[in-house]
Amino acid sequence: MIVSLPQIAKLKERVHSRHTSLFTATLIVTSLLLVAIFFAAKFDLRKGLFRPRAAVSSSAASMARMPQLILWAWERPEDLTFIDTRTTGVAFLAGTVFLSEDKTITRPRLQPLRVPPNTRLISVTRIETDRRAKPSLSVAQQKETVRVILESINRPGVAAVQIDFDAKDSEREFYRELLFELRRRLPSSLPLTITTLASRCASDEWLKNLPIDEAVPMIFRMGADAQQVRGLLASGEDFKSPACRSSVGISTDEPLPSNSSIFKNRRTYVFNPRSWSPEAFARIAQEVQKR
């Protein structure tokens, strides 16, 4: 087959054009790959680390199976043998971690807790920071706190973990790192939840991208934020943060939010400043049910 010069020139042009197209295609694919990696990995340049996406799917499924009513059992003698475990779970304070300067001081729960067999339990660890001798928020403190939390779940019936920490702005990065480390070390099917100030749910971007299955907005003891949060709820608005929309936290000694939609299809956690009694439980369960 004879190929003429013009044909060769055309061939060359076609080859050149193909090379160019190949190059362009490679560039496009590489770019797309980079974008895909970003979305998949949610990297954080500040730490120069690539973090795996939190394994939330199996834990989210586990969380969905938790009862819709959860009683907080705080550092008081609690006898909750009266509850119906099909409808009610218990989030018990397992221990408290206190961070002060370089120290990590821990105190386990010291008051007895009695629950019926098959109770779905959430092991709660509270973290407090010394307001006067500010903690250094070191890696060592993070590690020790994670260790304490992991130890706390080794109890029969524990079906989820909850962290209760009113972190200040300066403490958020520490908290965030802690949550990621904890999520990494927890069994993938064990849910990880946190409590949060209700006002954080109204506007806070910080809750986004945390490896948690739930953030429980505490609509009590709101202090300076009370007016803002009550106003939001009274106006029919919902919390901005999606993490805050699957549950709500209330207390037996404060009025419930007037907006009843905040309870619909949401898990309700209830705090009691005193030890629970069947009567106190019946009262609050009825109130929640009404809504």
Binding site: L27, S31, F38, L45, D169, D204, E205, W206
Partner: peptide
């Protein structure tokens, strides 16, 4: 496309705003 990717990358790397 390179411009888009780079811009996107820059935006993605920026820190979220600090909150009071």
């Amino acid at each position: 496309f390179i411009a888009f990717t780079l811009t996107f990358a820059l935006l993605a790397f920026s820190s979220p705003p600090a909150q009071a």
